[in-house]
Design a protein around this nucleic acid. Structure first.
Lengths: 157, 157
DNA sequence: AAAGATTGAGGGATCAATCTTC
DNA sequence: GAAGATTGATCCCTCAATCTTT
């Protein structure tokens, strides 16, 4: 979101913030581009397929899926509509009680995610994980924990 | 882009990658939401206003602006069209030679960015920078440098 | 009314095609 | 032809409104 807040940040702060901003932007662009080229999937498609393919029975209630991904229900609904049109998943009525739908992986969806996941992993390693030392990875995880904890506390408190 | 690549990542790698992914997503959501609520600007609006407002004469050639932001020309064109409709910037023909347009900050654009920038800085501090130690900021900057250098080398080589 | 889900509109990002000026 | 810029199509995301079932 931010570019130049320079006058009010010291040099070290600015370097960290700008770096984070640029890395976030460019790494995401790289990974989502390669995913799209190699597998024909958007990042959102991929996340849905991974979540559903790991669920027992390769099916998941829509409301659960939304929670797992941290998505709004309308976003999930639109996304599933697009993916259903392409044959990657289908909707089925929930077994017990008719309130709620389930998202079910199709055979095509299964094949697609099985082919895409190893490639995406390789890209993630090559462009990120394997470039960093164990200490750097540890610090990054710490940073994420701190920031996420703050965001949660702040929104629920 | 990625959620669960767990089987092929060790615990430390997974923690760092998942943490980065979640932090990237949620921090961006928080900052862009507060920017929109407080100033009526999207992240893209903000970046354009900051860049133009810092240029000499509060004006900037479109091609330069695109380079500075790392945007495609069509993205910039669409964005400027929307911002022009809202009166935040306007287009003018380039002084020397008629090839190329300039994007010029309007009085409204000036007022808007002057009001928005301090709030956005405060949000960035409160939700990110001020939560981290100098050592953590330093490591994050290092990580960003490594990853960005790799991405550049990889795309140009 | 509340929970689960869908829909439509509108901003946003990317791609391919186009147009103009040099 | 190449650089600078615009346009239209399409997908993605958010919001507000709606619909259904309990």
């Amino acid at each position: 979101v931010v570019q130049i807040l320079a006058p009010w940040l010291d040099a070290a702060e600015e370097r960290a913030w700008r770096g984070f901003h640029a890395m976030r932007t460019q790494l995401l662009a790289r990974l989502s581009r390669s995913l799209l080229e190699e597998s024909g999937l958007s990042g959102a498609d991929f996340e849905v397929l991974v979540a559903v393919s790991e669920a027992p029975g390769k099916r998941m209630r829509a409301v659960e899926l939304g929670r797992a991904l941290g998505w709004e229900k309308s976003r999930l609904s639109h996304q599933v509509t697009r993916m259903e049109a392409r044959g990657l998943v289908c909707r089925e009525e929930c077994k017990n009680g008719s309130r709620g739908a389930e998202v079910v992986l199709t055979a095509l969806g299964r094949r697609t995610i099985d082919a895409a996941a190893p490639m995406q992993l390789a890209q993630t390693r090559a462009n990120f994980i394997d470039l960093l030392s164990p200490a750097q990875l540890r610090t990054l995880a710490e940073i994420a924990d701190i920031v996420l904890e703050h965001l949660e506390a702040d929104s629920s408190g």
